[in-house]
Nucleic acid binder design. Structure first.
Lengths: 129, 129
DNA sequence: TATGCTGTATTAATACTATAATACACATAG
DNA sequence: CTATGTGTATTATAGTATTAATACAGCATA
């Protein structure tokens, strides 16, 4: 079964549609090779159950990821990460996927008049690796 | 007229409803006193025009902010920042409003396997104050 | 008083998001 | 073959988001 045990999460009150939150998470995990080409994704029904959402919502996310080329469908089995993906993502390329979040947090910090050093200090404190 | 010249922005492709983006920005500017109690907000129609959006969408945001107590309506004139707001927001309190964005960017960085130092360096480079 | 500015209400239409309950074709393990 | 597991399609329903075109009441001022 090769359980990858990846965990998908949603922020119910964020305003971002559930299927989009799923898509973005899978995209990031594929880009970082936490999900390698050929890896199986958890089934639509299991994700739906653990997130307490409708299976069709997860199916929609998977379908769009398939259309995007990130996933491949295996009839009767499940979804796997595409085997023919653009070459290994360098850290610079992955950083590109993080840009929107960086722009967002800087905008919010500016509007809150929270200076750069305070922001950096806060992230340093919260980001345990 | 006391033009405050505050600028509201939206990210059309973010999935977050426009009226929620407006609400969050105003909340932050009020918390940081960039919008002080009594300050006039730009009119529904002017914001709608500059964002190329329907006036009712902005009106909805303003109405919800009024219900929340952040804004007060002046019939026939416009919206102003409430005069009886909870006392001055300390930086700690403002930092609280930033927590969701911090959680979000750390989650994304982890999924992209971008380490703390890389993240900090990138923010430092982008945040010019 | 007339003009022009506020926010808002109304009605209608459209689109998107999500849920629920079924059903189907396919694959695989027993 | 049977049972169970894939993803997906269908139909119906609901709530939300957004737009459009009007209209109205209140305020300010020339």
């Amino acid at each position: 079964m090769t359980e990858q045990h990846i965990s998908l999460e949603i922020a119910p009150s964020s305003g971002v549609p559930i299927y989009r939150q799923i898509i973005e998470q899978v995209r990031r995990m594929v880009a970082s090779k936490q999900l390698k080409p050929g890896a199986e994704l958890p089934s639509v029904r299991s994700v739906a159950q653990s997130l307490a959402v409708n299976p069709m919502t997860i199916s929609k996310a998977y379908s769009l990821l398939e259309a995007e080329g990130v996933l491949q469908r295996q009839r009767g089995k499940g979804m796997i990460v595409s085997s023919n993906l653009p070459e290994s993502q360098s850290e610079d390329q992955r950083l590109h996927l993080l840009q929107p979040a960086i722009e967002q947090i800087i905008t919010e910090a500016r509007q809150l008049e929270i200076g750069r050093e305070t922001l950096l200090k806060e992230i340093k404190a919260r980001y345990k690796e």
